[in-house]
């Protein structure tokens, strides 16, 4: 059977500019984003559904919602 590629939405963090404040963590309904070791936020791609709440909340606006093929 042929594998059909689906498009999914995912949050992507620009870690270079992330201030690791953790605002995104508080609003994520699926606990799919975490601040790692006080350096930057990181998205768990297996959990993220790309709802965009973190991107809206991020005070530095360093989170983007992108379409990715899975």
């Amino acid at each position: 059977m042929e594998h059909v590629k689906k498009k999914r939405r995912r949050a992507v963090v620009n870690q270079k500019d992330c201030v690791a404040c953790g605002c995104c963590v508080k609003v994520c309904p699926l606990s799919a984003i975490q601040v790692i070791k006080g350096v930057a936020a990181q998205v768990d791609e297996s959990k993220c559904v790309g709802c965009g709440k973190c991107a809206k909340e991020c005070p530095a606006s360093v989170i983007e919602i992108r379409e990715v093929e899975v």
Partner: peptide, 26 residues
């Protein structure tokens, strides 16, 4: 929470974390 972006305490603690853990989060 725009203050969090340039909060001196936040900047300082992030620098400490980077010094301890390296620049790349894993």
């Amino acid at each position: 929470r725009s203050w969090c972006v340039y909060c001196p305490m936040g900047t300082m603690t992030q620098l400490i974390c980077k010094a301890k853990n390296g620049n790349k989060p894993s």
